[in-house]
Deep mutational scan, measured.
Amino acid sequence: MPVRRGHVAPQNTFLDTIIRKFEGQSRKFIIANARVENCAVIYCNDGFCELCGYSRAEVMQRPCTCDFLHGPRTQRRAAAQIAQALLGAEERKVEIAFYRKDGSCFLCLVDVVPVKNEDGAVIMFILNFEVVMEKDMVGSPAHDTNHRGPPTSWLAPGRAKTFRLKLPALLALTARESSVRSGGAGGAGAPGAVVVDVDLTPAAPSSESLALDEVTAMDNHVAGLGPAEERRALVGPGSPPRSAPGQLPSPRAHSLNPDASGSSCSLARTRSRESCASVRRASSADDIEAMRAGVLPPPPRHASTGAMHPLRSGLLNSTSDSDLVRYRTISKIPQITLNFVDLKGDPFLASPTSDREIIAPKIKERTHNVTEKVTQVLSLGADVLPEYKLQAPRIHRWTILHYSPFKAVWDWLILLLVIYTAVFTPYSAAFLLKETEEGPPATECGYACQPLAVVDLIVDIMFIVDILINFRTTYVNANEEVVSHPGRIAVHYFKGWFLIDMVAAIPFDLLI
Rank of each mutant, 00 (worst) to 15 (best):
N12Q: 15
E208I: 05
F106Q: 01
H70K: 06
E365T: 11
I30C: 06
N220G: 08
T216W: 05
M137Y: 09
F125A: 10
H254I: 13
N38D: 06
S318P: 07
L316R: 05
N128M: 06
E357N: 15
A80F: 09
S266L: 11
K373Q: 10
A277P: 07
C66T: 01
C66E: 01
A169M: 05
V196M: 15
V384E: 04
S379I: 03
Q25G: 07
H147L: 11
R76Y: 11
A285V: 11
E214F: 15
E90T: 08
D16V: 09
A57D: 04
D287Y: 05
R326E: 09
G381L: 04
F48K: 01
K373A: 12
A89C: 13
D287K: 13
V3G: 12
S104G: 13
A303T: 14
T353F: 08
T367G: 15
Y43E: 01
L267G: 11
C39A: 14
S263W: 15
K364I: 07
P72R: 05
E372A: 10
L315G: 12
A268N: 14
S278M: 15
G224P: 06
V94T: 14
S272I: 07
P361H: 09
I19N: 01
G139L: 13
Q81T: 13
C265A: 15
P245L: 11
F98E: 01
A97Y: 15
A253D: 06
L155Y: 06
I30H: 01
L248R: 11
R27H: 08
T174H: 12
Y327C: 15
V112A: 02
G24W: 07
L86Y: 01
C49I: 14
S104P: 03
R100P: 01
Q81Y: 08
P240K: 11
L343D: 05
Y327H: 06
T17C: 13
A260R: 11
P141V: 14
S354H: 08
G187S: 15
E130K: 05
S261L: 07
C105D: 10
K344T: 07
G187H: 06
G24E: 07
P168I: 01
T270K: 04
G345N: 01
Y327Q: 12
S239A: 08
M124V: 12
H70I: 05
D321Y: 09
A188T: 09
P245M: 14
L256P: 08
T174V: 10
G47H: 09
